[in-house]
Design a protein around this nucleic acid. Structure first.
Lengths: 151, 151
DNA sequence: CATGGTGGCGAATTTTATGCCGTTCCAGTC
DNA sequence: GACTGGAACGGCATAAAATTCGCCACCATG
């Protein structure tokens, strides 16, 4: 993971679809070298994949919310069960298992507020292990295009 | 945004680097048709870009936390200022502006707990508009590879 | 029944990926 | 100073892919 690797990763985070030639050109190295570097990064698991970034509205997900959830009892089994169930719900983008006051944080994205309400009442509340949850609607989200490597 | 567009989007979310031919093959359409569809989706802003998914540890970001923040006064100016400042901090992956008890939620990723502590005390606490914040360390994260289009 | 627009198709052309290999450069070692 | 291993380079050949473009089927419309 030298300076060149970092630069490759940075460029691929910004645009994963540029050709190997273009990548090499921007880095000032030979395409063959660049290709081998990218492969090595993939082999080592540094590059885990490539994903398209899609407009949420086109996916009927114009409304986002963060839902913090408390479950009981706090056993490994209950945690795992809830984590898996939550992750399988189509409205849920990601599940965070937390240390602290809340046990989970769910990042959800739905079509509209009606859908959010329905999700909370009809799907989430149905789960017996939940002893409380709190929902915060997301007004805006600023997302970093490419998190850089920290020093 | 017909059924075919949805399928294209789904496949590109899963693997943005597969060739246009492979994409077309999986969809049962001609490569030229597929290319035109992808371009149209890009023109319409449905596809916003392509990003490499990088192992956080390789970026010195093995520890994640969610930090909920309250600021005062709740003016448009203070909100915007804090939002921008937070987004510019390298430790911050994304900033959510929330409705409800908390005003912001920061998703941060740092090298280790020492770094997290330093970030909270030396960078975040320095901001005068903050009247309180609460940090939850992330034990695990389950992230959906490809959020599907909701019905 | 024309007719114009849309979307799709597939052949042709250009560009890229990929593997291979001899050469060069550099750093560390003797 | 000579040697050596590793990394990068650059050229080349082949395969694969991207991109272009003319043509056709379909369909709603007048």
């Amino acid at each position: 993971m030298d300076e060149l690797d970092s630069a490759i990763v940075r460029l691929l985070q910004t645009d994963a679809r540029q050709s190997n030639r273009e990548l090499a050109r921007q880095l000032g190295i030979a395409p063959s070298t660049c290709l081998e570097r990218v492969r090595a990064l993939t082999r080592r698991g540094v590059i885990r994949g490539y994903h398209a970034d899609i407009d949420p509205v086109a996916l009927n997900r114009g409304v986002q919310a963060m839902v913090s959830v408390q479950v009981r009892p706090l056993s490994r089994e209950v945690i795992n069960t809830f984590k898996t169930s939550a992750a399988e719900m189509p409205e849920v983008l990601s599940v965070f298992v937390l240390a602290g006051g809340d046990d989970f944080l769910l990042h959800v994205a739905v079509r509209d507020l009606d859908h959010l309400h329905a999700f909370l009442l009809d799907r989430l509340s149905k789960r017996k292990e939940i002893v409380g949850f709190r929902t915060s609607v997301v007004f805006q989200q600023v997302q970093k295009a490419a998190p850089s490597r920290l020093p």
